[in-house]
């Protein structure tokens, strides 16, 4: 979904070839999510099928010979995307599943799961921080915002792991007494 809407956002500023769209997307998102150019063509074809973009030469089926442009329906879809918050339903969370299974099925293992993940997540946080240290907030704003997002996610994960450890401990103390 996000590639679809990103292509619409880029085409709303000006018509472009598939490869130029790939480059522009990667430039705006600081290279964090490299796009496969094949994926760009497939997505453009689907957007065209749905009437949201069109080739400037509709007779010619060579996908990258002519620039693509956004249609009025495409502009409406884009405006709708910007206006709506993103879908809040979380994707399946492997860490949460692992912790819950370790707790339910073999409660001794859960401490080790929490500790191992804590160390790994802290290492990830340290790596992001190392990169952040050398990021120029004026010249690399997009990079900095991406790092902030990653750092806050890692921090939330650590906070959650600590909360799990504390709650499990409290639970065990309660069961023991």
């Amino acid at each position: 979904m996000s590639v679809r809407n990103s292509l619409l956002a880029l085409l709303a500023t000006r018509s472009a070839h598939g490869y130029a769209l790939k480059s522009a997307f990667e430039h705006c998102t600081a290279g964090a999510w490299p796009l496969n150019v094949g994926q760009v063509y497939t997505t453009l074809a689907r957007l065209a099928r749905d009437g949201l973009v069109r080739s400037t030469q509709p007779q010619d089926h060579d996908t990258d010979r002519h620039p693509w442009e956004i249609t009025p329906a495409g502009r409406d879809a884009l405006a709708d995307w910007y206006r709506r918050p993103i879908d809040p339903r979380p994707p399946r969370d492997e860490l949460a599943i692992k912790v819950l299974l370790a707790l339910a099925l073999e409660s001794g293992a859960v401490d080790q799961v929490l500790q191992t993940q804590r160390t790994a997540t802290m290492q990830r946080l340290q790596e992001y921080t190392l990169t952040k240290r050398d990021t120029d907030p004026h010249r690399q704003l997009a990079v900095l915002l991406l790092l902030d997002a990653q750092i806050l996610k890692a921090q939330a994960e650590l906070d959650w792991l600590d909360l799990c450890a504390a709650r499990i401990r409290e639970h065990r103390a309660g069961s023991a007494s």
Binding site: M122, L125, Q126, Y128, T129, R133, A154, Q155
Partner: peptide, 8 residues
């Protein structure tokens, strides 16, 4: 208590 700060 702040992990993001500790990471410095």
């Amino acid at each position: 208590h702040n992990a993001a700060h500790a990471a410095w």
